Simulated assay, not measured.
Amino acid sequence: MRLAKRKLFKQLEDRHLAMPVITDPIKSIFPEQPSIFPKNSLGFFADQMRIPVAILIEQFSDAGIYGLTPKYQITDADKSSLLSYLRAQHSAKSRRIYIDNEPIEQQLLVVQDITIELLTALAKKPCLIHSLAPRKFEELVARLLEDNGCEVTLTKRTRDGGYDIFGRIKGTIASPVFLAECKRYAPSNKVGVEVVRGLYGVTEGRRANLGLVITSSSFTKDAHEEKLRIGDRIELKEFDDLCAWLSRYKSIECKQTTPSDTTRLLPKA
């Protein structure tokens, strides 16, 4: 399973490198987390990775850096030592996050239908998102996350494990794991609190670092209040956030389309 995932991630990374980098990929998806610790301190670093400070201190100790405190200012040398240690540990013994007995080819789907032409059309006219079939909306979200620096896998169409996308945030030492649930709803149909609670339960059960609910509409008041109660283990992204993610494609040159061409570009259900 791990070999197949590495091959898939390599394909996704190659495609990402071909895209122009317009914004900081991590901050454009997951905003900087509030922290009581000074910037560049060990505690601040732990908060950004959404892991307990004690675990990060333990990891540094295992890497041979002892006696650290949450306010310790981390240097590049410290990060390199920790990264070398984690890579060695991963090579020696990969930790399985969860077990799935389905054949790998039944689990993973490479996003192929979301073309640059379609992304450009959606960037110029985001309301077309609501014309996508629910599955194509999931593929769109997976592509947006991928192009913003994440490694993503899309679950099987008929699978209902409580999430649609499994991903890792690249660019950090720990590569935090996230689960995303996609809801392609009409603008008037808001996502309710039960979806937020459901994904939080799956996030806890799968031991992921973050749960992400992404919708083409918006969220109810109860859903926002539940997110505040849960804290930073859950993030809510709605239509305006999708518009912001799509904005990077406005400047990408592609074949000029007419209104009828734009309609033709929308994948069929």
Rank of each mutant, 00 (worst) to 15 (best):
V21M: 10
S80V: 04
I57G: 07
Y200A: 06
P259S: 06
S35I: 03
E253P: 02
D24W: 04
G149P: 06
A244M: 08
I234A: 00
E58H: 15
G161D: 14
A142C: 06
I169L: 15
P176H: 06
T172H: 05
E238Q: 13
K221Q: 05
P31C: 02
T153Q: 09
P38M: 14
I104Q: 08
R233S: 09
F166M: 04
E235V: 10
A133Q: 02
L119W: 00
F37Y: 15
M19V: 04
Y185H: 15
Y85H: 15
R157W: 05
S217D: 08
D147M: 14
P70I: 06
M49H: 15
C254H: 03
A223F: 00
T120Q: 09
P38L: 13
K183C: 04
R197G: 00
E181P: 01
K5I: 03
L122D: 02
S216F: 07
K170T: 08
K93Q: 15
Y200I: 00
V141Y: 02
K7N: 11
D160S: 13
T115C: 06
H90W: 09
A223Q: 00
K255F: 03
K39V: 06
P38F: 08
E117Q: 11
H224R: 14
D222A: 14
P38V: 08
L56K: 08
F239W: 09
D62I: 02
L246G: 07
I104V: 12
Q112S: 10
L122H: 03
Y163D: 10
Y85P: 09
I74R: 07
R15T: 01
V53I: 15
I36W: 02
F9W: 08
M1R: 08
